[in-house]
């Protein structure tokens, strides 16, 4: 793909960055589409109309909390209750955003703010493993393209789920539930191969999350497991050049 581009008349760095962003965002799209379709179907069953279903994806853009929100709306829960539950479930994005924005220090605030809106578990994971772009010319286009690829597939998928209904067979949609986990694994393992200490940090976070989830909500468990697991990095990543 890259060679084909080079053969053409000198493509701009911007175009290259956009192409790279879309290609790195592609696995996210693959994972998002079936889940967004499922969300659309479930939200419809919960009594939301297509514009509400799509609006929630446009404005909230956080998978797990949208499933929960639609479910709670269907169950007749109060607005305050739903909003608080959403806050707890999505607060992990604060920690992720802090980490990602710290990597983007070099880029102007007018880029950082819109990019932060596109931050999800998946776009954060992929972006954070491609930190070199943050220092390159027109690197912001890489992140913007990556995030828009993910975002548009989420929004379009939810809309389609809302109008088309159940188009994915049951057996297949259950199997697709592993897609994002497999993507996380596919992102983590190459880093572990490069630097085994990364594997210790991830394993620590897994165990902490497992232990905490026995006592507190999964939203807080992920937040604390991420924060505490990250502390291992203070000692383990001493040699980190970046």
């Amino acid at each position: 793909m890259v060679t084909k581009v080079i053969e053409k008349t000198q493509p701009s760095t911007r175009m290259l960055m956009i192409q790279r962003g879309i290609s790195k965002g592609f696995p996210i799209m693959l994972g998002y589409l079936p889940i967004a379709l499922t969300y659309g179907v479930l939200a419809k069953q919960a009594g939301m109309n297509v514009s509400e279903i799509t609006l929630m994806s446009v404005l909230v853009y956080a998978g797990a909390s949208q499933f929960m929100g639609a479910g709670m709306i269907g169950a007749g829960a109060g607005m305050l209750e739903i909003v608080i539950a959403t806050f707890v479930l999505n607060f992990r994005h604060f920690v992720m955003s802090l980490s990602f924005m710290n990597r983007l220090r070099g880029i102007p605030l007018r880029w950082k703010v819109p990019l932060s809106f596109g931050l999800t578990d998946e776009s954060f994971a992929v972006s954070s493993l491609h930190t070199e772009e943050a220092k390159q010319d027109k690197g912001t286009y890489f992140y913007a393209a990556l995030m828009l690829t993910a975002y548009s597939s989420w929004v379009i998928g939810s809309f389609l789920g809302g109008i088309l209904g159940d188009i994915i067979p049951d057996a297949l949609s259950q199997s697709m539930g592993i897609a994002l986990y497999a993507m996380f694994i596919g992102l983590l393992i190459p880093s572990v191969r490069k630097e085994w200490r990364v594997g210790i940090i991830a394993t620590a976070a897994m165990l902490i999350n497992y232990e905490l989830s026995l006592y507190i909500s999964s939203g807080w468990a992920i937040v604390f497991a991420t924060i505490i697991g990250g502390f291992c990095g203070i000692v383990l990543l001493k040699g980190d050049k970046s």
Binding site: R92, F94, V95, M96, S97, L98, S99, F100, M101, N102, R103, L104, R105, L109, K112, V113, L115, S116, D121, F124, A125, S128, L129, Y181, F184, I185, L187, L188, S191, V198, I201, A202, T203, A204, A205, M206, I208, N209, A221, I222, A225, T226, I227, I228, G229, G230, F231, C232, G233, I234, L236, L237, K238, D240, S242
Partner: peptide, 30 residues
């Protein structure tokens, strides 16, 4: 966080912690 990192410089240990966050987050998400 976009505004926080614009205003505050972190000490080395905090940067190391933040650099470890993606791996910790991946672990906790899996």
């Amino acid at each position: 966080p976009a505004y926080i990192v614009d205003k505050i410089q972190f000490p080395t240990w905090a940067n190391r912690w933040l650099n470890a966050i993606p791996y910790a987050a991946l672990g906790a998400l899996i």
